[in-house]
Design a protein around this nucleic acid. Sequence first.
DNA 1: GTATCTGCAAAACATTTGCAATTCT
DNA 2: AGAATTGCAAATGTTTTGCAGATAC
Lengths: 139, 139
Amino acid sequence: MSDPAAFLAKHGVRPSYPRLKILEYLAGTKEHPSAEMIHRDLVLSLPTLSRTTVYNTLRLFAAVGIARELRIDETEARFDADMRPHGHFRCRACGRVFDFPLTPGIEQPALPEGFKLERAELSCEGLCPACATSSLPLP
Amino acid sequence: MSDPAAFLAKHGVRPSYPRLKILEYLAGTKEHPSAEMIHRDLVLSLPTLSRTTVYNTLRLFAAVGIARELRIDETEARFDADMRPHGHFRCRACGRVFDFPLTPGIEQPALPEGFKLERAELSCEGLCPACATSSLPLP
DNA sequence: GTATCTGCAAAACATTTGCAATTCT
DNA sequence: AGAATTGCAAATGTTTTGCAGATAC
């Protein structure tokens, strides 16, 4: 992300300071954070940041195509600024979300006649390599 | 579903009356209902049925492999007793959830080494045929 | 008779909303 | 000034939990 402000402007989003910080945070992580995680981290350097603004901003980012909302976690929405096609894998033990490449064709599933596809998401769950080989008791 | 009680017993689930009714309801619909929808309909013929029991039962069904929980709706979990591999499409206008066949290979995505896959779900969103051709204003 | 199941009420939790104060142009 | 943005507090809606009574084996 060379110029975050220009990137926001290009998507028709006014580059306010909170929005810039949220964009930079999201573009610079592979954690697929939730709104709560983003707020918890950013409020350290931006103490006035409210949860409401984080929620508003993430919804706005999703609406204009800057980020996507993942429904891979049972309790909270997770967000990803990588808009290239890829799948997600959530480890049920540690909760981390991993990206994985899609076999070509999956991103354009063959829907019956008449359906107008706008979004597709391949979500997997199981154990990540670290948790699969761990000797700790699993949830 | 020829013998629902035997089906439950086969999965190690005691066939109580509420569980039987919930199983029959779920197996007899293509609506992919939420817990609330199931309760709203079943309470008409089973007035003592509580929401808690519906939630408990659906969680139990998912745990033993009788049904699966879909995270395709923004607000509430939806449930499906069809355990055969297939994808789901949610219409953002009418909220209905449709099944569609999966191109072979999708149900076994190629994960990187070491990941232990337990569940995979392909969720799509867009407009269903009825809503796509409707002249009503869309949400 | 003991473990399991049910249901009510209350709690927990993520997210949204109303609205006033602030900020940007 | 005027429009957009922010942030607080309260509300919303789904799901979970504690616990007492009912039920099944």
